[in-house]
Amino acid sequence: MTVTRETNQMGIIYFAWQGKAIEQEDVKVKLDAKWRRFAEQVMTEQNAVSATGLSKLWMRDDLFVCLALPPSRFRSPEEELLTLGSRLKLDWEERFMAAEFGGAIPELKLHAGVSFLNGSILSEEERLYDGIKRAIIHGQPTGATERSLKRRALEHILMERLIHPVYQPIISLQCGTEAAYGYEALSRLPDRRWFDGPLQLFDFASEEGLTYSLDRLARERAIEGSAGLSAGQKLFINITAKIMNDPSFTTGRTMLLLEQYGLSPHHVVFEITERSSIEDFGAAKKILQHYRTQGYQIAIDDAGAGYSSLQSIVELEPDYIKIDRSLIHGIHQDSMKAHLVQTFTELAAKMGISLVAEGIEVESELRYIKSIGVHYAQGYLLGRPQPSIA
């Protein structure tokens, strides 16, 4: 592999097969006999249809592809290299596995990693060695190029504040008229290129250690878009249990933002989502008490869906319990669900807690939960999420 010093950035893409299946003799024989020939052929095809200009270096069965990346108006060099590495990896893996094994083998994956050649290293040999080493390190985890692209997408969302809120009404059932008691703010993404929806985005942020930043952005965007909320209505905002470990969570930033938009803490209910369990109830209670003294209220979301719903209710003494859709769906036809929700109703009455039934989709569900004394309801039957508060 010859590396020339050009104005274009020079990158390396590393490809290597990894997985327990390599220990199987028949798999190893096919890899040894066919992989190099396959890679040489597809690289020839790639060079025939692209001006990228790929050159190669083999180290045993590991392939290092070197290429020059011309300037692009649409992508940074890093994103361009990651995108190309991801595309080639997915394409080559699928084609090779189909041709030689008749389809994918779960314990055999083509790994890809990327790096740029460091222009500050004077020796071309050292420059190439350094780039190869960094590409190998980057490519060790499965799906490294795709993960790096998702990380960049998440950072872009945070930097450009690309989350936009929608608002779903929560209807009062016990005041004679089915009026909007409040609205739950839900986060939406600008597109689904990297994440299927908010849940996948928040899960990935948790894996990358960016839960606090994403949660704060969602909270701020929910408040910023809440124009139209009347004096007596509530704004339900989701927070994850982990966010309560964030040292910046109690700095008063939320209070300042509310004042900016003509709201007060009395408008806000923090929904503690059950996506992750609370590890330290003592610390959580202290933080929540700090918020309660300012006028905020607390809800336990997704009650009945798992994790630590009952313990959360007992330890945190919420103002609201939101009963998960899984218990509401078909409740009028399911005696077990009916008994469980009735138990929630009795518990809430004794503890002075309000109940919200989530996911109401048919009139029969609505009539039933109203008949047993559930205070509030939310679901497509009562109103779909909208970009603004009506």
Rank of each mutant, 00 (worst) to 15 (best):
G119D: 14
P106Q: 10
S50I: 02
A104D: 11
G102V: 04
E125V: 14
L117M: 14
V29T: 05
L117D: 05
E45T: 06
S86M: 12
K28N: 11
V65K: 02
K30G: 03
L82D: 02
M59H: 14
E79A: 06
H111K: 13
L82F: 09
H111L: 14
F116G: 02
K34Y: 13
V49I: 13
L84R: 01
L54W: 15
S72D: 07
G113L: 11
W35T: 00
M43H: 06
A21S: 10
S86I: 01
F101K: 09
P70W: 03
A21H: 04
D91N: 12
E93F: 08
L122T: 13
L110M: 06
E124L: 07
G102P: 04
L63C: 09
R95P: 02
E45P: 01
F74T: 03
L67D: 01
K56P: 00
E23C: 02
G119W: 07
V29A: 07
P71I: 06
M43Y: 05
Q46N: 12
E80F: 08
P106W: 10
C66M: 15
A104F: 08
R37Q: 11
F96D: 05
E79V: 07
E107F: 10
E40Y: 12
E80V: 02
S72H: 06
G102D: 09
G85R: 04
E78G: 02
A33P: 00
N47Q: 03
A33W: 03
L54C: 11
H111C: 12
M97F: 07
F74I: 03
L81C: 03
A51G: 14
I105T: 02
S115T: 02
P70G: 08
E80S: 11
R75M: 11
E100M: 04
F116Q: 03
R36W: 04
L31M: 09
G119R: 14
R87F: 10
Q24E: 13
V29C: 00
F96P: 01
T83A: 07
S55V: 15
